[in-house]
Structures are given as C-alpha cells and as structure tokens.
Amino acid sequence: MKYPISFHLNGKIVSLEVSTQETLLDALRQRLGLTGAKEACNEGNCGACTVLLNSAPVYACMVLAVEVDGSAVETVEGMEGEELHPLQKALIDQHGLQCGYCSPGILLTAQALLAHNSRPNKTQIREALAGNLCRCTGYTDIIKAVQVASRARR
C-alpha cells in the first residue's frame, strides 16, 4: 500500500509516497538518497541508524516511514552549518571513530543529549549513548569527544 507523507527533514519539508513496508531508514537512504544514517543490524539492536524524530533519538530501522508523516526528522546530513558541528569536530579531534560506521548515529544521540543536558558528566554520557554500539573504539574517546564538545558550546 502506498501513502503520501510529508515531514520536515533537516529543516526542509519533503513529501513522498511510501509503502507500509518501508521503514524511515529505507525512505531516507533509498528514496531520499541520504545515506548518512547507516543500516547495520536492521533490527533495533545497534544504533547505527539513529536519527532524531521530533528531537528524540530513535532507531530509524524500527520506525515505519508512514508513521513520520507530520513529524520532524534530523539526520547527520543536517548537523553541519557553515562549519562542522562541535560534536563532529570533537569526534575527529579526539579520535572517537575508527571504521566510522557508528559515528552518524552516535553524533545524533549525543546532540540530543546536549540539548537536554549541556554539561553531562561521564556517567550521563555513557547512559545516554548506551543504545549505540561501537565495535572498534572502546568508547573512551567518544565520551571524551562529547565532553569536549559540551565545553565548546557556549
């Protein structure tokens, strides 16, 4: 079944027809060409596909595209403005990535965290990011990056 939907994507309105089988992740990656959100487990276990839905981090692989009609979605492609977002910059500088497959999802969860709590401590960062797996880095440098970014923001 096809349904027309429209939603805010990184601040712009997009409209498209989606089938009920499509997830938000499918729509972003295959229909809208935004491959920043990664498809990994595709079953809600890893966080590589994390996007913000009405400012809240969700697994895009577990949200149906029809459900987002009328919502606001933010992806990694919307993070940078003129310059890199402080979180992106800090992730680079603190070496919080290796293969980088987890990075877009981690950045969005961290962005949501900083929106709630501008000065999170280490425990708060770990807990907020518990739904994002990284097989490569061992997390320490990601935590450091979030702390550095939180200080960089005014």
Binding site: V58, M62, V63
Partner: peptide, 9 residues
C-alpha cells in the same frame, strides 16, 4: 531500559 532510542519509542 538501557537504550534511549528504545525508551523513546
């Protein structure tokens, strides 16, 4: 419930 993404949904 550990994953924020899960708690949000």
């Amino acid at each position: 419930v550990p994953a924020w993404q899960v708690r949000n949904r």
